[in-house]
Design a protein around this nucleic acid. Structure first.
Lengths: 137, 137
DNA sequence: ATATCAAACTTGCATTTTGCAAGCACTCAT
DNA sequence: ATGAGTGCTTGCAAAATGCAAGTTTGATAT
């Protein structure tokens, strides 16, 4: 298939995110890093959707290649790696919150607290900046 | 794999959207219906990313099953079908705009006009409601 | 120094999904 | 009745996924 200079099928912004996040697993890693305090390979493996090890390795590599996350040696444990967001990755936060809101509204089995929707609809801007602040620490 | 009563791997809101949109094509159909005035099977087939006919048929069926889009006979042409958003589908608009903004910022080859980012950052709320109004006609 | 262990992958292989080409069915106009 | 337009369906090769098992590397205990 034809590809542009970024390796994408087109220059469309919707397609651009699909090239990185258009699968069943990548966004779950972003979720775990953003909202669930997961940081290591082992942490991600434990998530309830049970990603398999080869897929996890592949997706972490791709997220790093795309400049969404960075990998560094853990200060506590020299034999473990810590994954963290780059600025580009952190900026996915508004997308993640809009997705959460949509699902909270439309999924009858959601685990999202009902207070989330109220807070988000009444004060999006502040919620985003507060969370961004916490994540940047 | 274990599935909940909605057929999902978990009750997480991020995972909920992945169950429907976690592939390379589904969101392009949403894009075409939302921003590119595409309405018919033939319209979607013509998009620049060149979706194949069997995948298109499958994704349209799934979007309809998930209550995101609806299918009706064209008033102009009785042998053609028109796809349109349900309310649930229309409510994907904020997600689509956040995705567009993120890509516009991070994709060096984006076709998004630079004016989009200025408008979106300075006045998200109005932009969403204006577009929603146009799409609801 | 050597054995053990834990963390982070890697590999092999069966199953599933995708992508491409071709074909089919059902209108509608002539 | 026939041909064109629209919306799919089918068959099959290629790629991605899922599962289990194995490998590597550095820390820790003996």
């Amino acid at each position: 298939m034809a590809r542009n200079s970024e390796g994408c099928r087109s220059n469309c912004p919707i397609n651009f995110v699909l090239e990185t996040f258009g699968d069943k697993w990548t966004l779950l890693i972003v979720r775990d890093l953003m909202f669930k305090d997961k940081r290591t390979y082992g942490d991600f493996l434990e998530s309830e959707e049970k990603i398999s090890t080869n897929i996890l390795a592949d997706r972490l590599k791709r997220l790093e290649e795309h400049g969404i996350i960075a990998k560094s040696v853990s200060p506590q444990n020299q034999s473990s790696f810590i994954y963290s967001f780059t600025e580009k990755g952190l900026e996915l936060l508004p997308i993640m919150l809009e997705i959460t809101a949509w699902s909270a509204k439309h999924d009858t089995t959601t685990n999202t607290p009902s207070t989330f929707l109220e807070m988000f609809y009444s004060n999006k801007k502040e919620m985003v900046s507060t969370l961004l602040g916490k994540l940047s620490k």
